[in-house]
Every structure is written in structure tokens, then in C-alpha cells.
């Protein structure tokens, strides 16, 4: 069974049970390892092959951008990696835990402990204020930040008592980011986080995400249609027809402030 462990300090990362053979000093720690992952959706009599056997290793603390046309398998991979969905076949490990073997309750615990999600349409609860939306996560996380602190990190300390309907799109997305990072997750999964935002607001959100990566050592997976964003990544997975067609490695990550669209 999956059992999250507590971190040691306020901003310390929670870790999965350490691998007995792995050295803590190991420079290149792996977050996710996927081998021959396949996902087939069956609707009626048609089968949709969303993933056609992908292999990948995602390193801890890296920023990874997933690029590709609609239906190429990016979101499917993100959902499987985040424990929202299950692969039809193949194996997927997070650190030493085999996610493909977990049942629903354990997948829920995995999400609760390790994963922060950010969506294009924010998915805030309209009946809860900004702070209460963050509290949704801190109420159930093991070693969360203070909700106010999380909101301060995204620059919304002043607007903590506002309801989503009283916030702009960019502000709402930053609340979503605060909600995602408040639990100090190991991984942040972002599906088109800037898709509904203007350039300036989008950059602001990306900066927040990058800060989380930098300060909390959070692994960051970003799906985007915006090729410009790829420049802030360590690596870029190019998807095509359910496969990772190409993996691009950036020599140098540029800061979000340098991106524009």
C-alpha cells in the first residue's frame, strides 16, 4: 500500500519511502518511470488508442513541457501520471511505487500526498473564498503550508476573502496554483494552465509555477499548445498520435518573463 511520509521542515519535500539501494546523494533521482504505456478508450464499437506504448523517465525537480496537437495523448499521459486514470497496459512507477498496481483508494492517497493539479478552467469551488479553496487541500494534506502563506506566494494575500466570481481569470488561476502548491506536492501537473489567460497574466502564472519548482523542488509537467512556453522547460516531449515522437532537451531554461505570446 502507498504510504506517504512526512517531510522534515516547512518547505521540505515529502518523500516516497526511500529506495534501499538508492543513495540520497544520487544526483539524478527519477520521479516517474513509464514503460510501454498504452491506453485504449472503448466507446461503443470503436477503440481509440490514446497512448500507443510510450516509454519515459521523468526526473525529480525537472520542468517538462508536453507539446502536440489535440488528441495526441498529452492529457491522457498527464491523467495517468496524476492517478486520475489508469493505463490499459504497461507499467508506471512513481519513485518505487508501482502506480499501475494501486487500487482506487490508494490512487486517491497518492494524489492527496504527492500531486497538485492545475487546469485550464481553474476548477475552483465557487461557493468557497480564495483562502477556503486552498483550505480544501490543507484540510486533508499531511504537512501543508498555511493557506495564507500559499496565497502570499502567488501574490494574492490581499484577496484571500474574495469568492472566485469576484476575481479575474488570472487571479483565479493563481488561486488554483496556490491550492496546488499548498500541500507541497512532489509533482505539479498543469493542463493548459495559461490557455484561458492573456499573455501578461499567463506569464505571472508561469512565474509562480517556476518559483514552486525552484523553491520546493517540485517536478513540473505542463501541457500546452503554446510552443513559446517550451523554452522554460528542461525537456520537451513532442507528442504525435499517441506516441512521444521526439524528446527535446533545452541547454538553458529561460525565465517566464522572457516568454511572450
Amino acid at each position: 500500500m502507498f504510504t506517504p511520509q512526512r517531510g522534515s521542515g516547512k518547505l521540505a519535500r515529502k518523500a516516497m519511502p526511500p529506495d534501499a539501494t538508492a543513495s540520497p546523494a544520487q544526483a539524478e533521482r527519477t520521479a516517474f518511470t513509464g514503460r510501454d504505456l498504452r491506453k485504449i478508450y472503448v466507446t461503443g464499437e470503436t477503440e481509440v488508442h490514446a497512448l500507443r506504448g510510450v516509454d519515459f523517465d521523468i526526473r525529480k525537480g525537472e520542468i517538462l513541457v508536453l507539446l502536440g496537437p489535440s488528441g495526441s495523448g498529452k492529457s491522457t499521459l498527464l491523467n495517468i501520471v496524476g492517478g486520475l486514470d489508469r493505463a490499459t497496459s504497461g507499467s508506471l512507477h512513481y519513485e518505487d511505487t508501482e502506480l499501475s498496481a494501486l487500487d482506487d483508494a490508494d490512487l486517491t492517497r497518492f494524489r492527496r500526498a504527492q500531486i497538485g493539479f492545475i487546469f485550464q478552467f481553474y476548477n475552483l469551488i465557487p461557493s468557497l473564498t480564495a483562502e477556503e479553496n486552498v483550505r480544501l487541500v490543507t484540510d486533508i494534506a499531511d504537512d501543508p503550508m498555511d493557506p495564507g502563506e500559499a496565497l502570499a506566494l502567488v501574490g494574492l494575500a490581499e484577496r484571500r476573502h474574495h469568492y472566485p466570481a469576484q476575481l479575474s481569470g488570472g487571479e483565479q488561476q493563481r488561486v488554483a496554483v496556490a491550492r496546488a502548491i499548498a500541500k507541497q506536492p512532489g509533482v505539479l501537473l498543469c493542463d493548459e494552465p495559461t490557455g484561458a489567460l492573456d499573455s501578461q497574466t499567463g506569464v505571472r502564472v508561469l512565474e509562480t509555477l517556476e518559483a514552486a519548482n525552484r523553491e520546493l523542488d517540485t517536478t513540473l509537467l505542463i501541457i500546452t499548445h503554446n510552443a513559446g512556453i517550451a523554452a522554460m522547460a528542461d525537456r520537451v516531449f513532442h507528442f504525435l498520435d499517441g506516441t512521444i515522437a521526439r524528446i527535446e532537451t533545452n541547454e538553458r531554461r529561460i525565465s517566464p518573463a522572457e516568454i511572450s505570446w
Partner: peptide, 16 residues
């Protein structure tokens, strides 16, 4: 439904 799904994504169990 949307909110309930969000809660599930955030790591809430079904019974919660």
C-alpha cells in the same frame, strides 16, 4: 458534479 470531481482530483476519497 464538477466540484465533486475537483475534490476527487484534489485527493478526497469517494466517501469524503
Amino acid at each position: 458534479a464538477h466540484e465533486l470531481a475537483t475534490l476527487r482530483v484534489l485527493g478526497y476519497h469517494r466517501r469524503e
